[in-house]
């Protein structure tokens, strides 16, 4: 939904999205306990982006998951699915009680999403570097069908090291996919440390721009900024694809995890679990003070 910054309507929306972002984080912590291990931090960094997309921006109808003209969303950084599944359940794609089976034998929900098992998942992911090509295919198909739907793709920043991302970026520019929007969750870390140390991914804006993309750079935890940026996009099928580089903090919301290279996959046990849950419930994020 479109809201103007500074209005009462916007304030109410931001408060709602902040609550849903917190829900992404607390559910991630809860589901990780069921699984015994999980990707906390790469999910926390994307929480506000997930909330803004799913509760405000995406043109979707959870009662009709195969709606031809729905906006597509490709979660290329599939390891953030642990925080995405609860949103899909919350929106009504499936019964939230099913999440109690998370990662258990025969469950529909594993650490990475399977589109054949999870309603609302437009594509499967897990192997990094593929999602943008998938999104290019969906954007081309949408244009061919005469649909005005958008295709969204969320990339991780470490994922930008994959060569196929740049094959896809090149083709999106070449095919003038104005209906394609990438959100880069620039959370600064990959598994072995800071991307700046492991492999330089900057300047991300310049790199996308060189392939024919329009770029924006925003604070990926600032819901007001996220909504403003999303609201400013066109729906033209022919034009310039857009890359939104969202500066985020890997592990955002839990101090012991923020920008720590030790929490890519982890498991909180005992009082640590309770402490982290309490920390998340105490602090509203995503709202400018």
């Amino acid at each position: 939904m479109f809201t103007r910054s500074g209005t009462q309507q916007r304030s109410e929306l931001v408060a709602k999205l902040a609550d849903r972002a917190r829900f992404v984080r607390t559910e991630t912590v809860r589901l990780t306990r069921i699984a015994g291990a999980g990707h906390y931090t790469a999910t926390f960094s994307a929480a506000e982006l997930f909330a803004a997309l799913y509760y405000s921006e995406l043109r979707i109808d959870p009662s009709n998951p195969q709606w031809t003209d729905r906006d597509r969303f490709v979660l290329s950084k599939g390891h953030a699915a642990i925080g995405w599944f609860p949103l899909l359940a919350d929106l009504g794609y499936f019964d939230a009680a099913e999440l109690e089976t998370f990662t258990r034998f025969g469950s529909r929900f594993g650490d990475h999403p399977d589109m054949k098992k999870v309603l609302g998942a437009d594509f499967s992911s897990g192997s990094l570097g593929h999602g943008l090509s998938i999104a290019v295919g969906m954007a081309l198909a949408g244009r061919l069908a005469g649909s005005d739907h958008r295709t969204w793709c969320m990339l991780g920043d470490g994922e930008l090291c994959e060569g196929q991302i740049w094959e896809a970026a090149m083709s999106a520019g070449h095919f003038k996919l104005g209906n394609l929007v990438v959100v880069v969750d620039r959370n600064q870390l990959c598994i072995d440390g800071f991307t700046d140390d492991v492999m330089t991914v900057e300047p991300i804006e310049d790199r996308f721009a060189a392939f024919g993309w329009a770029t924006r750079r925003i604070d990926g935890h600032d819901l007001d900024a996220i909504l403003d940026t999303f609201g400013d996009l066109s729906r033209s099928a022919v034009g310039t694809p857009t890359a939104i580089i969202a500066d985020t903090v890997k592990g955002k919301g839990v101090r012991r995890m923020e920008l720590s290279p030790h929490w890519h996959v982890g498991n909180l046990v005992g009082t640590d679990y309770d402490d982290v849950m309490a920390e998340l419930m105490a602090e509203p994020l995503g709202v400018e003070a």
């Binding site: 031809t68 597509r72 490709v74 589109m115 437009d122 594509f123 593929h130 090509s133 998938i134 999104a135 290019v136 295919g137 969906m138 954007a139 081309l140 198909a141 949408g142 061919l144 069908a145 060569g163 196929q164 094959e167 896809a168 090149m170 083709s171 070449h174 095919f175």
Partner: peptide
């Protein structure tokens, strides 16, 4: 011509684009 896509020398991109197209009914 409107249903033909030459992706250049980028085979992996080609196969995955095809998968994305198939997910949209092609």
């Amino acid at each position: 011509p409107q249903r033909f896509f030459n992706v250049g020398i980028a085979e992996k991109n080609m196969v995955t684009i095809a998968a994305g197209m198939a997910a949209s009914g092609l």
